[in-house]
Design a protein around this nucleic acid. Structure first.
Length: 466
RNA sequence: GGCGACGUAGCCAAGUUGGCAAGGCAGGGGUCUGCAAAACCCUCAUCACGGGUUCGAGUCCCGUCGUCGCCUCCA
């Protein structure tokens, strides 16, 4: 069995082979931190977290770097408007985003570099570009000369001649070619800036990522990820710069996730149709958002609306049903029933890997997991005991762990509550034996309002948190 | 206008090299239950449209219509 990965560079799937045996160097473009992150940002983080977790499951050691762009026009503008220090503003949103990542059960990156810590590397790289003739200085700005990059456009599938720069924005007359882009920007008066051989200024957006790759992962990496809105110009330019300097192919696999759609269009700050991560998490668990992402192909646009969110909330509850204990007083299931369960466990494990191996087909993998859920619930209905359910439940949990699902039944601060609820159930049992159903239903309703679900079976009653 | 992705049941969505259309949510029927809930069982599509290739196409080719992304900061 081999893992196949879709590569934007070749526009096809190919077998995944790392530069170094057993080790994956992976870089993912993080957010520009000038505001709170929304669920669209969560999507890229979740997608690549799933990729990373699966690579680990497949036995790779993964070096995972996610950057923060902490200096750019928007941060400066916002800071100026709020009258705060741009560094502090960026710092605040970096911390907030990291907090979001934790809430979403996303594994911490090996490193979280940020642009402002890479200035030395950036200046060195810009100097190299100028020396090689790949960049030129104009009045304190430094531009990359795209015509020196022979295969410029190879990632986005554009040809230099076909690009009509300036169709929507004024072209800077000082540039040799309209498509040339800034690697160093001259500082405006009073703006935060660093000294450089070309005067005071700050790095262009694209060079930051090139620099962070170089200093944290090296000249060549295995996977470069990000949203598909970054393909052009950001990633195209990253390739041009890095390869101009190293003379070597930069990233082996370029992976791009699709955009999250809200009301039929891309969720973004500029259009204002967004849902902050923290707002979402006030109502739903991180698992719901993760399940939403898992339920479709990462490269496709993802539909986000209340109906879909609710459906995934219910789907999550179904996954949780597999982990419930045996029925009270279960007599034990027959060998035939247990054989079916064991077979399904094996089929699910195999199907899971087959799906995930095919460019991380998480939706297909989930389908196999749901088959196992049904099998477990069937066995339980057929009187399987906890011991008999255990192997399948353990196998189930292992796979959902690979997908990063927590599957924690809601746990309130229930310290000591269990004993009291058990007591109430015992009393309610007496009511039911006396056929005081009105009273026992009343107890059930009241407990439900407190988040306790009671289920009555012929063998007795069970309860769980909502 | 250029480049790219996509169009599968009420909704979301999978479908490897073409060979009887996964899964989830919602809906309908049933088992169980004092009732309810959960769980279990049964049920629910010929794949945008029109051509073509083939013994056979959702799956390949052409065209039409439609949706989305990028071409400007953007996950």
């Amino acid at each position: 069995m081999t893992l196949r990965v879709y590569n934007t560079l070749t526009r096809s799937k190919s077998e995944f082979k790392t530069i170094e045996e057993g080790k994956v160097r992976m870089y993912v473009c993080g957010p520009t931190v000038y505001d709170s992150a929304h669920v669209g940002h969560a999507m890229f983080a979740l997608v690549f977290d799933i990729v990373r977790r699966y690579l680990i499951y497949r036995g790779y050691e993964v070096d995972y770097v996610m950057n923060f762009t902490d200096v750019d026009d928007k941060i400066i503008d916002r800071a100026n408007r709020l009258g705060v220090d741009p560094f502090e503003l960026a710092e605040k949103y970096i911390e907030e985003f990291k907090h979001n990542l934790r809430d979403l059960n996303i594994l911490p990156a090996s490193e979280y570099p940020r642009a402002t810590n890479e200035i030395d590397t950036i200046i060195k790289m810009v100097s190299q570009l100028i020396e090689k003739g790949s960049a030129y200085i104009v009045d304190g700005d430094v531009y990359f000369r795209v015509e020196t990059a022979r295969d410029y456009g190879k990632l986005s599938g554009r040809k230099l001649e076909e690009m009509n720069a300036g169709s929507r924005i004024r072209v800077d007359e000082r540039k040799e070619n309209p498509m040339d882009f800034a690697v160093w920007k001259k500082a405006k008066p009073g703006e935060l800036a660093w000294d450089s051989p070309w005067g005071s200024g700050r790095p262009g957006w694209h060079i930051e990522c090139s620099a962070m790759n170089l200093s944290h992962l090296g000249e060549q990496i295995d996977i470069h990820g990000g949203g598909n809105d970054l393909i052009f110009p950001h990633h195209e330019n990253e390739i041009a710069q890095t390869e101009a300097i190293t003379g070597k192919p930069f990233a082996r696999y370029w992976m791009h996730n699709g955009m999250m759609q809200l009301k039929g269009e891309k969720m973004s700050k500029s259009t204002g149709n967004l849902v902050p991560i923290s707002e979402f998490l006030n109502e739903y668990s991180g698992d719901v958002l993760r399940l939403l992402v898992l339920s479709s192909y990462y490269r496709s646009p993802l539909t986000f609306n209340s109906e879909v969110v609710e459906a995934n909330q219910r789907a999550l509850e179904r996954l949780l049903s597999a982990l419930r204990p045996a029925q009270p007083g279960a007599a034990g299931a027959s060998k035939a029933v247990l054989d079916v369960l064991a077979e399904q466990l094996e089929a699910t494990q195999q199907g899971f890997v087959e799906s995930m191996d095919e460019d991380f087909n998480s939706a297909g993998a989930l389908g196999h997991i749901f088959d196992l859920v049904r099998a477990i619930n069937q066995a339980r209905a057929e009187q399987a005991t906890d011991e008999q359910l255990a192997p399948a439940q353990t196998g189930f949990k292992l796979l959902t762990d690979v997908l990063g699902l927590e599957l924690k039944a809601t746990e309130l601060t229930t310290t000591g509550a269990d004993a009291f609820i058990d007591l109430i159930l015992a009393l309610r049992k007496e009511l039911r034996q006396e056929k005081l159903y009105q009273l026992s239903d009343h107890v059930r309703d009241k407990l439900l309002k407190l988040g306790v679900i009671i289920e009555d079976t012929p063998q007795g009653s069970t309860w769980r948190w909502e």
